[in-house]
Design a protein around this nucleic acid. Sequence first.
DNA 1: AAATTATTGTATCGTTCACTACGTAATGTA
DNA 2: TACATTACGTAGTGAACGATACAATAATTT
Lengths: 214, 214
Amino acid sequence: MQPFDPPAADRLVPRAKGRPRAFDRGAALEKALGVFWQKGFAPASIAELCAAMGINPPSLYGAFGNKAQLFLEAVDHYERVFWDETWDAMDIEPDVHLAITAFFAEAAAILTTPEAPCGCVVVLGAINVPAEFQSVADALKALREEGRSLFIARLRRGVAERQLPADTNLEAIANTLHTLLQGMSIEASDGASRAQLDQVAECARALMPAPQSR
Amino acid sequence: MQPFDPPAADRLVPRAKGRPRAFDRGAALEKALGVFWQKGFAPASIAELCAAMGINPPSLYGAFGNKAQLFLEAVDHYERVFWDETWDAMDIEPDVHLAITAFFAEAAAILTTPEAPCGCVVVLGAINVPAEFQSVADALKALREEGRSLFIARLRRGVAERQLPADTNLEAIANTLHTLLQGMSIEASDGASRAQLDQVAECARALMPAPQSR
DNA sequence: AAATTATTGTATCGTTCACTACGTAATGTA
DNA sequence: TACATTACGTAGTGAACGATACAATAATTT
């Protein structure tokens, strides 16, 4: 996990005009993430968010805009802290089989982290949102699409580097890996244990074609 | 799909006391299912349900109890109409590999049905429900658990009938198939095409161990 | 015919929702 | 010191939510 990195405006500008903010914006954002993570976007009320963040509604709206923007900023923070390193590692690992294996092992750990063992907020956070917040659902759908693209790119490289057969159906396998990853979030929110998701991660390896014979 | 089978009280009792119901209870239930299916439990408001069902709130509550009971009855109807046959076929097919293959092919079709190509209402319908409706989430979680059990039972039979290696890790593979199935619902609600889910279904076969050599 | 029972449509009920108006407090700037 | 600017806490806003009270209506039962 990466340390929290507040927006530049929070530390670079020595002093702002007007009354200074009385709460830690980054800490409040993390508290909000905790609420969104465990309850999802719609059931997380402004009142509950404010209670967790230790502030009142006007402070929330002043610092984060509105509920949708707060949610998206919390999700962005979540991705950077919990997933960026894992996705990067998949690209750094030279062997595609090891890369995918390691990714799913780490995913099982993230999805069942003691902090919030309830799946991925990108996958589950904006399911069943009211129509007025459709933009939130669209934004998270776009984030999920990025995950699929990363799988495709990594498998394509595996083929290019002769670690996968030339006739590998890239999209099909990438889609399946992506589908499995999203299913793991539902399992986690249903209370699946770390060991249970580890089993699934182990099985994910079977989706990869055997290394190309020389 | 099976034809709609109304509760016995609707057809066996020739006449009930009091003013007779002025609408078709089964047809109204199917309309409600359509709304719940596309929007999920929480975003489907009583007002919208009533509009789709062609009735007023008092009729809804008189016939179905409350929103939670209406939803659970609609889900039960959904399962019977869309999934019972598919699960049964998995048990009827003698070969476990063919059984799993056929199941996932049919699942891809159901999840992208033109009627509501938005995934499985058992998987997605009760995600992110407010705490006051926790019982609804619990009920659907139990239904999902049944799916996992059916996979386990089918694979266990496959081992007993010597179609799978004796050392097959039943639970791990069944969990993974179940996880993949649930991920397919998210893909479908994200707009995945039938062809895309067919690819995933095809890849699911790779999760099964090769038939035991004699 | 009178009584009983259940369903109907209208018009709400109280609660919770996301969000904000407003006056006050705390800073930098002139 | 006066002013501009921003954040604060209190106390609400209108709207939407799930669920109902009520009187009228239509059926069976006595």
